[in-house]
Design a protein around this nucleic acid. Structure first.
Lengths: 217, 217
DNA sequence: GCACGCATCTGAACGGCGTCAAGATAATCT
DNA sequence: AGATTATCTTGACGCCGTTCAGATGCGTGC
């Protein structure tokens, strides 16, 4: 009744009692989407469920997103930004020059494994556009950081073709490991190696058969 | 109960005029599913659409598959078997011992790129089970062939851990490349390299940054 | 201070989806 | 033949994405 003050509910955009125009729906919808993803998995992520979670009618989201896809894209975008942050953090933690790509890879896979439903949406959205995800390319995020790390690792930055190919190869490897690391068959090996992170590192160490190189000693 | 000579339409299970009990629905449903996948993409693959395509009522499939998922699994299974065949063929074409994994990888990615919608379903089904796909492990198919190729490539077959890790790494790389090779950003590079297959080979050649190795000369 | 315009939200509706229960129909068995 | 069983259809339920006509509250210009 008297709880107007349209702007800036507080921040969290989730517990405000009943705003008749809600105040900041689009953000709340994205948050609701992520909540559903984590709680109920990607198959439960329907537009109606998101609206329900945010406490609005099923048609309300259409005033903020033209599509279900556009909502999912917003969710995915948030994910790519967080992934970018994780990569940045990992890169800052590295000392030896050649180790940066590996650390980025571990950070990438770790993020995907910690947010599997979110990562699925992120990648799904990217594939549907048939292009690299926006968030992965925005400044200070994924793509450019990988590029820098590859240069540090010793690839000639003027050889544009080698740069590109190395970058693609790195991204593909990380994505492949991210998606397959959850298979049950690998559980015993993970345990034997002392956890998932060790497992990821070991897999990266063995990458290279395709190119004719042997696996490491 | 099983294959009771029901009448054996002919073989193709798709053009028979109007059988009142249709004769061999489950096969026809799988075929219809693949048809829809190729023609309309994975999002159009609904149970009802498959039934429509096969010329039966929406409830008919439930006498042959308990679920939509079970139908998709049958479609996926067919896909894995074909992929196994493609891998076998590629392996037979190889001469140098160390080149087998690379050729398998190229065959894998080529198959996925030629049947993108099918591959998506194949992989989706595998992920939902959180285990390696059945077809990929059945004798004479994917998994075992990769194992053999890795041994040929020089990994010690008695070092079970190295075998496992190398195999996982190879599989992850192939899957990653398969899913990302379609991105539009790579089109110009593909053209510059003289086609998609050359592109795939080059990407494989550059795999290895994650492990700290340099890219090839 | 108040009426207007506008952004926002609701309610009801449409067609399509996956799934199930009941009834029809054909093939098989005895 | 008749009975049984496998197969398919019809119709229904609830959920989905989406649209549209109307309600509701916000900010603004008078």
């Amino acid at each position: 009744m008297s709880e107007t003050l349209h702007s800036a509910p507080s921040a969290s955009a989730e517990e405000a009692p009943r705003r008749y125009h809600h105040g900041d729906l689009s953000r709340a919808l994205v948050a609701a989407g992520r909540q559903i993803l984590e709680r109920d998995g990607p198959d439960a992520l329907s537009l109606r469920a998101v609206a329900r979670e945010a406490g609005v009618s099923p048609a309300a989201p259409y005033h903020h997103f033209k599509d279900k896809a556009e909502l999912l894209e917003a969710v995915a975008h948030e994910g790519w930004e967080e992934l970018g942050g994780a990569i940045k953090e990992a890169r800052g933690r590295v000392d030896a020059p050649g180790a940066a790509p590996g650390e980025i890879g571990v950070a990438y896979v770790t993020f995907a494994r910690k947010n599997p439903a979110l990562y699925r949406i992120m990648y799904r959205m990217a594939c549907d556009r048939e292009a690299m995800p926006e968030g992965a390319k925005s400044e200070d995020s994924g793509w450019d950081q990988v590029r820098a790390a590859i240069i540090e690792a010793g690839v000639d930055p003027h050889d544009e073709r080698a740069m590109m190919l190395t970058q693609i190869a790195a991204w593909c490897t990380a994505h492949g490991v991210a998606e397959m690391a959850g298979f049950k068959e690998f559980d015993s090996l993970k345990a034997a190696l002392g956890g998932e992170e060790a497992f990821i590192r070991e897999v990266f160490r063995h990458v290279g058969v395709m190119s004719g190189r042997r696996s490491p000693s």
